[in-house]
């Protein structure tokens, strides 16, 4: 009996969403009186940091990045879940983790619940629904389940133990072959970012984005944008947040010159703190925000960046 958790590691760095999944798995195992085992897949590094979040056992598959895809990861998890007699499997909400969860649920005949925000309680579990516009409590119908966690909703829970890391090898292969990458790793990943600075059409033109980037830089924040901004090619598509873009829930979301349309809010409303900066006092975003400034972005942004720079020393 065990709780298996899938951990993504890259150049020795474990993704934040994976640490959250580890926290969830360790607590779940503790409640069930069973054992949490991490299946760590990816190049390099130090899986023992999982000990900080209560994981005592880790299996590390040191795969090259080009070998990692939804199918190879699914194969490894499936065989480990079987070896370990997994009753529960925990996944972050990353695309590859979701894929592995779906595949494991099919092969091991487990149930699957996505967008999970809390530990299961008496056979029920809370999850998000309707693109963050609601929650739903579901009754689990299966004794074995895969849980896919909604990013930043469960949080990191420290519970230090020593981790025993075992190195493993795999000959997992798939019909998918890697061709090439096109990456820009200089930026903070949006779903992992604790702080996000986002701007909309109120910024008027792409050449004004340096104001947004400077603010983000001082904060160490990720950058995002509204849909019309990415549609117009002012910003790359992967920065588009909302119901039809990425859904995020950082600790701080600063929305600049974004009106606050329902589709935009759907992707960001579960952020822990929201600041809206808008020249229109009637902008709907102020109804969804914790802090608001009515003002011209071109005037407020440089001042705010400067004030933050001073405050951060």
């Amino acid at each position: 009996m065990s709780v298996v958790v899938y951990i993504e590691i890259n150049d020795g760095i474990i993704k934040k969403g994976s640490l959250e999944a580890a926290s969830f798995a360790a607590k779940l195992a503790q409640e069930k009186g069973s054992k949490a085992v991490a299946v760590v897949i990816g190049k390099g590094g130090d899986a023992s940091v999982l000990g900080k979040y209560g994981i005592a056992d880790a299996l590390h598959y040191n795969l090259e990045e080009t070998q990692i895809n939804s199918l190879t990861v699914a194969q490894i998890l499936q065989s480990e879940a079987q070896n370990l007699g997994a009753t529960d499997a925990v996944f972050s909400g990353s695309w590859i983790a979701k894929a592995a969860a779906a595949s494991l649920a099919v092969h091991a005949q487990m149930g699957i619940v996505t967008e999970v925000t809390e530990l299961p309680k008496n056979g029920t579990i809370l999850k998000k629904a309707f693109s963050n516009k609601a929650f739903v409590k579901v009754e689990l119908q299966n004794s074995k389940n895969c849980y896919v966690i909604s990013a930043n909703s469960f949080g990191l829970h420290e519970n230090p133990v020593n981790t025993n890391v075992q190195e493993k090898t795999s000959n997992a292969s798939s019909g998918l072959s890697h061709v090439s990458y096109n990456k820009d790793t200089s930026k903070v990943s949006l779903t992992d970012a604790e702080l996000v600075v986002s701007a909309g059409r109120g910024l008027k033109a792409p050449e004004n984005w340096h104001l947004v980037e400077e603010l983000a830089k001082v904060l160490g924040a990720g950058t995002a944008c509204s849909k019309p901004v990415s549609d117009a090619g002012w910003r790359p598509h992967h920065e588009h947040v909302g119901q039809t873009g990425i859904s995020i829930s950082p600790n701080l979301y600063i929305a600049i010159g974004i009106s606050g349309a329902i589709q935009h809010l759907a992707g960001v409303s579960s952020s822990k703190n929201i600041v809206a900066i808008n020249s229109d006092p009637e902008a709907p975003f102020f109804k969804a925000a914790d802090y608001g400034i009515v003002g011209d972005a071109f005037d407020v942004l440089p001042k705010l960046t400067e004030a933050l720079r001073k405050a951060k020393g």
Binding site: L126, K133, K137
Partner: peptide
């Protein structure tokens, strides 16, 4: 196949009023 049954829906808690700060 039916691996989950809805027990109850909930709406997110209402936001408290936004604190306005002078520009």
């Amino acid at each position: 196949i039916n691996n989950q049954k809805v027990a109850k829906y909930e709406l997110p808690p209402d936001k408290k009023a936004c604190k306005m700060i002078d520009a």
